[in-house]
Amino acid sequence: MSFVLRRLASAVPTLFIVVTISFFLMRFAPGGPFNLERPLPPQTMANLMRTYQLDQPLWRQYVTYIGNAVTGDFGPSYVYKDNTVAELIGKGLPYSMELGFYALLLALIGGVLMGTVAALRQNSALDFSVMSLATIGTTVPNFVVGPVLTLVFAISLSLLPAGGWGDGSLRFLILPMIALALPQLAVFARLTRGSMIEALHADHIRTARAYGLPGRVVVVTHAMRGALLPVVSYLAPCAAALLTGSAVVETIFTIPGVGRYFVLGAINRDYTLVMGTVILIAIFVIVFNLVVDILYGLLDPRVRHD
């Protein structure tokens, strides 16, 4: 328990550093939120700058931002003018989290199962097909996979809706979930296969066989637990990848999540929105890293924390 608290405490400086670096990087990028294709009249520009306090010195803007952010105020969006950043993220996040959760589940369970099967039948036709699928999953980007899935399952076969959230039922989730999960599923399958093959060659697996334990027990109890360790460590980067991957998938399937803000915020120089999404991703990564460490401790007594 004290381990969790200690880790959460160490997350504060991490977040602070992430926020600081992003804040200044964003400001040093050329352009600004109000630099439109047709330049605004100087008077209007000055007014806008004053309204949003962008005329203040940079350090003061930074101090103000940090001060507000600590109280949960992430400022107004410069582009979606009637919304605060907190509102925008608050509205979109439930959709993205639900989609991300199912995608993570699919990637993890599917990847581990496929990787295990491939490892147990190493160099068989089954192994080669799983690994080919994994290669496709890694190499074909989801802006190709998404439309292809829509074309086949929604338009040609009319089995599933082509997009939108609808009533939020599973039917609407299946295609975006697959498009989002596929690259991660491929990584999990590869990781599992590799570590499983290694685990099956371990001396203690020979011991388990020498003591007459049935193959099922040898694989599940002894090989798989060790093989899952590298898989678990990938959970955190995977969660981050799912969040950013949702930018494309949510656009293709017109899902009202937060994914599009990652891209639009940056393109529009919507400073506050970018900062909001950066903090969101940072929190996700920190939380998932903590989850990974806790899981790791549960799986492996050698790194157990007290």
Partner: peptide, 22 residues
């Protein structure tokens, strides 16, 4: 499996790796 581990058993060179660390 009915014989190995019951009637005929084995110990190995490297006891560290021969036991499951988990």
């Amino acid at each position: 499996n009915k014989i190995r581990g019951a009637k005929v058993t084995m110990i190995f060179q490297e006891p560290m790796t021969s036991l499951d660390p988990l």
